[in-house]
Write a protein that binds this DNA or RNA. Structure first.
Length: 919
DNA sequence: CCTAGTACGTA
DNA sequence: CGTACGTACTAGGT
């Protein structure tokens, strides 16, 4: 270990805006003027979303802002917009700007988008009724100057030249919006031969065509400038109008009124009352996620990166969009960790673990700890000395020593792989962020630090600058310092996210559900499930033979070999070569999915379709088997990873491999489940399913008496519902009736339409609509609930599960019908699917707790949304079954508003394989 | 090599 | 024109 070093102040290079001593820099932009310039500078047909929304003005404007932020490094920014077409100027002079053409249709709407973008960048947009943007800019520039600021005004309106002085520069577009002329006093003087304050006098004489202000015929800028010099300004000229010689003088005398009017109108107002002063316009951190989202929405894809790269936020070279991380990073001397930890006993420390979080063979090679005092320490675990390692191990394993981690399940695997088990995790910043924003797809620490702390961690700074090798010290100090910065961010994030959770009523969800579940899931992943690899290999051969056969027969029918896995080539065969009727339209032509092919086969009986479908099935099964074989670890087991922060509804997901979509519906598919077997030293596998969990939740949430009674009666649900809907006794509900009802019941939880139902059941839309009518007439509570849940979500902005897990659905108020409808279906489904997810998570905690408490050797292996798979130790079968039934059945008692109104039935099966344990 | 589109497995 | 996922493949860009 290195000698003890003095604490290093660790300022990462997000350059602070105004170094002390340099004046603040205010950038003011005339929004409408610059957007309009951008609109004409960029081809509208090259800048539009796939929906046809034009974005050329938005892009040009935003691109210009990015350049300005980069080049000018303003400390303060604001954009002013005209409030409307009528202003005090149009009242004085009706024709003011009256020559302007109607706003082009593709421009309309783009200003609103620009304002939204500015909002995400936290750049204020200012308007003032009856005044123009330039009046706002004029007022602010005068105020800012008085406060000692340097001012830049970006506008395409020449009237702003009157504002130019030693502290105020106008940036005037000369070509498009990318090239701006810097109008300083000298530049104005050079161009017009007058100081800036005389410019409006000149404009009054010459006129301003863009404002529809006529000038004096025969008087151009040269003459005007000469007069202004000669008579000491416009007042002098007007006073001496009689003495002005020549034809021009005559012309002047004929237009005195117009000149007076011009001068009155082109004077900018500098004493408006504004809600914000220059001091309120300081550059603030952006809402990076929202900015990213809006660029996504604008489909700026290819240019988005360029845009982001220009932005100071990303490059870290701009204004104080983000703060630099400030910590004291200490490299501790040998044996000092114990005391360092002791000094912070009982205080939660942030942890950063470097290593691999793989479930089967995790490993950790570095760890950093950050205390509440801004101090952090880091270790290279390959070099750590025994006294420090034992202090670290004891502290990590101590459940009473509070820890804060980002992605604690990965850390768990990494540390366990190093022989350093972790306990006492009181906060996981990834889980917390997930509960706050469940629709996000990623929760990178770097992004959370920017979003919640406005702090740049600078993780890849050394590497990306190409100087990494130079900076990196052999003892790992540089890496250690970055780790310490992350650990400090994790610790600080816990404070902010803890508050966010509390605001959302989600603290309980984190502390008593998701966080305890991490440990359960980690152990499930580490345990894995045993695989009969020999059997699986045999299955692969068998499916492979089927693939070859089906392909050969398919080729024989059409007389040539095509790639049966290519929808494009299949379309050629089906619709061109074989001339079959067209299927449902998709983006790339006509669908060749299984439903369409089956339908085509029913109509044409063409043998190619039969072989094609058989090939699809076989290739799919082979692919599944091959994937599983690849995933078998050296211990003969498959270790999936359960992702806890992916599904927006609260479900888990499973990856590497996905064990939540192993086939079960077809016989051939079920064969694959025979490969999942009980491991050595265990007696059997046990599966436990909730039956009709989502319908039970619907019954509970809706409070529908009929549906609740259906579950209490213990009768077959779909037959019970069918008998009520069709008005026949339960035992006279035919299988066809029952399956219609089943499809309908489940469809309702997904926001099914009558059209969708008709497709599903291959019946007329009218018949489907009638079926829904009958259903709702008997189960009105369900209808009321479904309409109510959307209404409430629209009001509150979110849906909630029985444990208060929220899903935010801002699109419920979208102007876009497609998005709105989608959001409505999400709102219908989220409370149901999410509550089911809550319930099985509660059940998992209960099962795991009881297994441990009773000292049983049986263990949880898998969760498949409404099913748990356990490995049962010898002699524990009956006790485990009872325990699982008990815990799963009781999960409903944890609901926020009291126990469920319906029982939770659990079906249990036992067997040597997953297949045989089914029921 | 990466992305979009298609298809399909589960609950 | 029914929710929530993950994976694998082709095709077309790079």
């Amino acid at each position: 270990m290195a000698d003890r070093l003095a604490p290093v102040s660790d300022a990462l290079p997000a350059v602070p805006p105004a170094t002390p001593g340099t004046p603040a820099r205010l950038l003011l932009i005339d929004g409408h003027s610059m957007a309009y310039r951008a609109f004409f500078a960029l081809p509208v047909d090259k800048f539009a979303t796939s929906a046809g929304e034009p974005t050329n003005a938005v892009f040009g404007f935003f691109s210009m802002i990015a350049n300005l932020l980069r080049d000018e490094q303003p400390t303060h920014v604001a954009v002013a917009f005209d409030a409307g077409r009528t202003t005090f100027r149009t009242e004085v002079y009706e024709a003011y700007k009256g020559n302007r053409n109607a706003t082009p249709a593709p421009f309309k709407g783009q200003v609103a988008v620009i304002e939204r973008v500015l909002e995400t960048m936290h750049i204020p947009s200012l308007t003032k009724p009856q005044f123009e943007a330039d009046d706002i800019l004029a007022t602010l520039s005068v105020q800012a100057r008085a406060q000692g600021m340097q001012v830049l005004i970006c506008t395409g309106d020449r009237d702003a030249f009157q504002l130019v002085n030693e502290d105020v520069t106008v940036l005037y577009p000369v070509k498009g919006v990318s090239e701006l002329a810097r109008m300083t006093p000298a530049a104005v003087e050079a161009k017009y031969g007058l100081p800036p304050e005389r410019y409006p006098d000149l404009a009054a004489l010459v006129g301003e065509s863009s404002d529809n202000l006529p000038g004096i015929p025969g008087v151009g800028p040269k003459t005007a400038a000469k007069w202004i010099q000669q008579f000491d300004g416009l007042e002098g000229i007007l006073a001496a109008a009689d003495k002005v010689p020549g034809k021009a003088g005559e012309s002047l005398r004929e237009n005195l009124e117009q000149v007076r009017l011009n001068r009155q109108l082109n004077a900018l107002i500098t004493d408006l009352e504004l809600p914000l002063g220059p001091e309120d316009l300081a550059v603030r951190p952006w809402d990076r996620a929202a900015l990213h989202a809006i660029l996504e929405e604008l489909e700026f894809r290819a240019i988005r990166d360029r845009l982001f790269a220009m932005l100071p936020d990303e490059s870290g070279t701009g204004p104080d969009i983000v703060e630099a991380a400030q910590i004291d990073h200490t490299v501790l001397g040998a044996g000092e960790l114990g005391a360092w930890l002791e000094a912070r006993a009982g205080r939660p420390l942030g942890i950063d673990v470097r290593g691999s979080g793989a479930p089967a063979n995790g490993d950790a090679w570095g760890i950093a700890l950050a205390g509440p005092d801004g101090q952090a320490a880091s270790f290279d675990l390959a070099e750590i000395l025994p006294p420090d390692e034992s202090a670290l191990a004891a502290w990590l394993a101590d459940p009473a020593a509070p820890k804060i981690v980002h992605a604690s399940k990965e850390a768990w695997h990494a540390l366990v792989g190093r022989g350093l088990p972790i306990a006492g995790v009181v906060f996981d910043t990834e889980l917390a962020a997930y509960l706050c924003q469940p629709d996000r797809r990623a929760y990178d620490l770097t992004d959370l630090a920017i979003g919640y702390l406005h702090r740049e961690l600078g993780a890849d700074e050394a590497a990306s600058s190409g100087q990494g090798a130079l900076d990196l010290e052999l003892d790992g100090t540089d890496e250690g310092r970055r780790a310490a910065v992350r650990a400090a961010a994790v610790r600080d994030l816990a404070d902010v996210l803890g508050g966010e959770l509390a605001d959302r009523g989600a603290t309980d969800l984190l502390e008593n559900l998701e966080l305890p579940l991490v440990d359960v899931l980690a152990r499930m992943e580490r345990t894995g499930i045993a695989i009969d690899s020999d059997y699986l290999s045999g299955l692969e051969k068998s499916f492979d033979a089927q693939v070859q056969n089906a392909a050969a027969e398919a080729y024989a029918v059409i007389g040539r070999e095509v790639n049966l896995g290519s929808p494009k080539q299949l379309q050629e065969v089906l619709f061109d070569q074989l001339g079959m009727p067209k299927t449902k339209r998709i983006k790339t032509g006509y669908t060749t999915d299984a439903a369409a092919l089956t339908d085509l086969f029913a109509r044409t009986q063409h043998p190619f379709l039969e072989h094609l479908l058989a090939h699809r099935d076989a290739i799919r099964l082979r692919q599944t088997v091959e994937g599983l074989l690849r995933s078998v670890a050296t211990d003969g087991r498959i270790h999936t990873t359960f992702q806890q922060t992916i599904a927006a509804t609260g479900r888990l997901s499973s990856v590497d491999p996905n064990l939540q979509n192993i086939p079960i519906r077809t016989e051939a598919g079920r064969q694959i489940r025979r490969a999942f077997v009980v491991g050595d030293g265990y007696e059997t596998l046990l599966t436990a399913d909730y039956s009709q969990i989502e319908m039970r939740i619907m019954a509970h949430l809706s409070g529908d008496e009929g549906l609740i009674e259906a579950f209490r009666s213990g009768e077959d649900l779909h037959s019970y519902v069918g008998s009520r809907v069709f008005g026949v006794p339960t035992d006279e509900v035919t299988p066809a009736m029952r399956s219609k009802i089943k499809a309908m019941s489940y469809g309702l939880a997904y926001g099914l339409s009558s059209y969708g139902l008709s497709q599903q059941l291959s019946i007329e839309v009218s018949e489907a609509a009638a079926l829904m009518q009958d259903y709702f007439s008997r189960f009105g509570g369900v209808r009321d609930y479904l309409t109510g849940v959307v209404d409430v979500a629209r009001q509150t902005g979110y849906t909630a599960t029985i444990l208060g897990r929220r899903r935010y659905l801002p699109d419920l108020t979208s102007d876009n019908r497609q998005r709105r409808d989608m959001a409505e279906r999400m709102a219908l489904n989220a409370p149901i699917q999410g509550s089911a997810a809550d319930l099985i998570k509660v059940a998992m905690l209960g099962v795991d707790r009881e297994l441990t408490r009773r000292g049983l050797g049986s263990r949880l292996l898998l969760q498949v949304h409404d099913e748990l798979v356990l490995e049962v130790a010898p002699g524990e079968r009956d006790e485990v079954e009872a325990l699982v039934r008990e815990q799963m059945g009781a999960a409903g008692d944890a609901a926020k508003d009291g126990p469920l109104d319906v029982p939770l039935d659990v079906t249990v099966g036992v067997g040597g394989s997953w297949h045989d344990a089914a029921h």
